[in-house]
Design a protein around this nucleic acid. Structure first.
Length: 645
RNA sequence: GCCGACGUAGCUCAGCUGGUAGAGCACUUCACUCGUAAUGAAGGGGUCCGGGGUUCGAGUCCCCGCGUCGGCUCCA
């Protein structure tokens, strides 16, 4: 047999040679380091005979610890098997479900015997059991067995989940054999591949336990999922834990109350209370939308919060989302609080006649929305029951779609640029369940593509992921810790104009149906602030900082000049405070640093005499003295231009 | 909504097997008048998430509810 190695050389091997043989043939070091072998892109166990390429010479590549995410996924999958083995040791009678590698780790789902509750107190015991399986250097051995044999085996072991999986493999894929992997006393149904032995797991840790539905189906059994992670070195594990620690320090739920921005109360689950400082941030963002949206032709409107049920029947919400709306009644009329602005905007559009000359109509509304989200899904500012979207709705003709989408995309990039986010785009196309003709979908998808292309934007296509009423473009950003968030969306909608019977009079004097675009860039202001806090760790840029500069006096006698300096800042439209407490300068600086105030202005005899301030920037330290007037101008400029810092 | 964990002062937390609640920071007052990340001293502050129950006695044990956290399902 012949294989082509990554460097282009040809490897000659005897027939029936295994991956391990290949590694040995390349070199003894590689033979020791190899985890698995990749043939034409497919990973296989080292112990399996290599497949002969019939009509071509297969490419062969050895996977080692340095193989990046693939290597990590492999060893984490190994660790999942070791976890299952450890759980079987510790809890006889446990039923095992599935245990894959996932991003950053692995998990295994179990059904514990009735009455047995497992939580993180049990981790030391389980980790010790795992460590024994690893120290024993158990080999992962693969056998391909007929499905009947596998079924008999798992039935005998009373493992109903494995039986169900095999039955599905037979039914859906016509499987006749399945592969089983054994390490030590434990055998699992598994596609593989695995490393040669458990010893290759150099560092691991169990992380958490959580409930999860069997096969992700909420009507089926709730299993217990144990999460863990594994690495090739203790150092890598430690680095990962430090990253988690950093993410914890940036947790907006911790930062928000700490910085006095917002808080939560049991009296309003899933709804933030905004303190003055948080309200400054919030308002600054709304102001950004007003200013940038206004410049681009999106005009602000205000629509009611509470509507008669008939509006929701027209929009379809009453039938589809009633459980998730807050309802009330008035004089025997059922009413619901709006979960989105679009029906109100459709109503607003419908209340007056429109000529084609008026289009496009672009409504913007920072309208407060309420959605009755299930209690278990609430999460800080990121998933709430009360929030405000930077919502824009454009009513236009079909011919205008491309221009309007392009306009929205430019708007989005302009907004994201202000925050310095990396952005990526996704186009979602027609789903299985949809309304409208094929010709309509062809036209609308083409319009979105044309809009993306007209701006020379790169994007990924998600086939079949669009809304049932139209395709959409989703906008994602990556934060400072490398996490991706979906923020913006631009959705094409033929459904609402139809339901609300919206019309405009065309040049032909006939009535036509407009098309609607739903555009949100930051998404919800609440969620956006959450993301911004996670991204910045709370050190907001000057234009967003609730307090932009704080004047710190050295002694009592500087309070008058300090007050004057603060007033100058305020007169320039800046948010400034004076700290003239009876405390040491060191103390005042420390407090201001902890509040992450961008600039600290220290004033003593020297500054008071020369009309100066000593500037200290957050996280940077002393920048020296500057004339007060000069500093005020500079800071006002930075705030006005929304400079990054 | 489902599974598990958690809920003690404004915050972070201690409180062993049931015996009448404590620390640090914050806050208040006083002294100090200070030059780039914590001056010192004194003091005030608690329906131990809520409601039932067991007990001579419950922060602690049991039950129900609420909220929060980790996930799962959901997310127009």
């Amino acid at each position: 047999m012949e294989f082509e190695l990554p460097d282009g050389t040809i490897l000659h091997l005897a027939d029936a040679a295994t991956g391990a043989d290949a590694a040995a043939a390349i070199g003894p070091g590689l033979a020791r380091a190899a985890l698995a072998v990749r043939i034409d892109g497919e990973l296989r166990d080292l112990s399996r005979p290599l497949p002969a390429g019939n009509d071509h010479r297969p490419r062969l590549e050895m996977l080692t610890e340095r193989g990046g995410d693939d290597a990590l996924a492999l060893v984490r999958h190994d660790a999942a098997h070791v976890l299952a083995a450890a759980v079987l040791d510790t809890y006889p009678g446990v039923k095992i479900a599935i245990g894959p590698a996932i991003e950053n780790g692995f998990y295994y789902d179990f059904e514990f015997p009735a009455g047995t509750v497992v939580n993180d107190d049990d981790f030391p015991l389980l980790e010790a059991a795992m460590a024994r399986h690893i120290a024993a250097d158990e080999r992962f051995t693969r056998e391909d067995v007929p499905v009947r044999e596998a079924l008999a085996r798992f039935r005998a072991e009373d493992q109903p989940y494995k039986v169900e999986l095999i039955e599905d493999l037979i039914a859906n894929q016509g499987a006749r054999t399945v592969s089983l992997y054994t390490n030590g006393p434990f055998t699992d149904l598994c596609r593989g591949p695995h490393a040669p032995s458990t010893r290759r797991i150099k560092a691991f840790k169990l992380q958490s336990v959580a409930g999860s539905y069997w096969r992700g189906d909420s009507s089926r059994t709730m299993l217990t999922r144990v999460y863990g992670t594994a690495f090739f070195s203790a150092g890598d594990l430690k680095a990962f834990e430090e990253l988690l620690e950093r993410a914890r320090a940036n947790d907006h739920r911790r930062l928000g109350p700490q910085l006095g921005l917002f808080g939560f109360s049991e009296t309003a689950p899933g709804s933030a209370f905004w303190y003055p400082a948080g309200t400054e941030v919030y308002n600054a963002l709304v102001e950004l939308s007003r200013e940038m949206g206004g410049e681009r032709g999106y005009t602000e409107v205000k629509t009611p919060i509470l509507y008669d049920r008939s509006l929701w029947e027209t929009s379809g919400h009453w039938q589809k989302y009633r459980e998730h709306m807050f309802t009330t009644e008035s004089e025997d009329r059922a009413m619901a609080v709006k979960p989105m602005n679009c029906p109100g905007h459709c109503q607003l559009y419908a209340m007056r006649p429109h000529s084609y000359r008026d289009l496009p109509v672009r409504y913007a509304e920072p309208g407060p929305l309420h959605r009755n989200e299930p209690s278990g899904t609430l999460h800080g500012l990121l998933r709430v029951r009360h929030f405000t979207q930077d919502d824009n709705h454009v009513f236009c003709t079909e011919d205008q779609i491309q221009d309007e989408v392009a306009r929205a995309l430019r708007y989005a990039f302009d907004v994201y640029d202000v925050f310095g986010f990396e952005t990526s785009l996704e186009l979602s196309t027609r789903p299985e369940n949809r309304i409208g003709s094929e010709a309509l979908w062809d036209r609308s998808e083409a319009a979105l593509r044309a809009a993306l292309d007209s701006q020379s934007l790169a994007y990924r296509v998600n086939e079949g992921d669009g809304a049932f009423y139209g395709p959409k473009i989703d906008m994602h950003v990556t934060d400072a810790l490398g996490r991706s968030w979906q923020l913006g969306t631009c959705q094409l909608d033929y459904n609402f104009p139809e339901r609300f019977e919206l019309t405009y009079t065309g040049a032909d004097n006939a009535e036509h149906r407009p098309v609607m675009l739903h555009i949100a860039l930051m998404g919800s202001y609440e969620r956006f602030i959450g993301i911004l806090l996670e991204h910045t760790g709370g050190g907001l840029p000057v234009w967003l900082a609730p307090v932009q500069a704080i004047v710190l006096t050295i002694a009592d006698r500087h309070a008058v000049y300090g007050g004057l300096a603060r007033d100058r800042l305020r007169e320039a439209g800046l948010r400034a405070e004076l700290d003239d407490r009876d405390e040491s300068v060191g103390r005042k600086i420390r407090d201001a640093e902890l509040r992450k105030i961008p600039y600290m202005l220290i004033v003593g005899d020297r500054e008071a005499q020369r009309d100066e301030v000593s500037v200290r920037a957050h996280g940077e330290g002393d920048l020296g003295a500057t004339p007060l007037r000069e500093f005020v101008e500079r800071l006002a400029q930075a705030a006005r231009t929304r400079a990054a810092r």
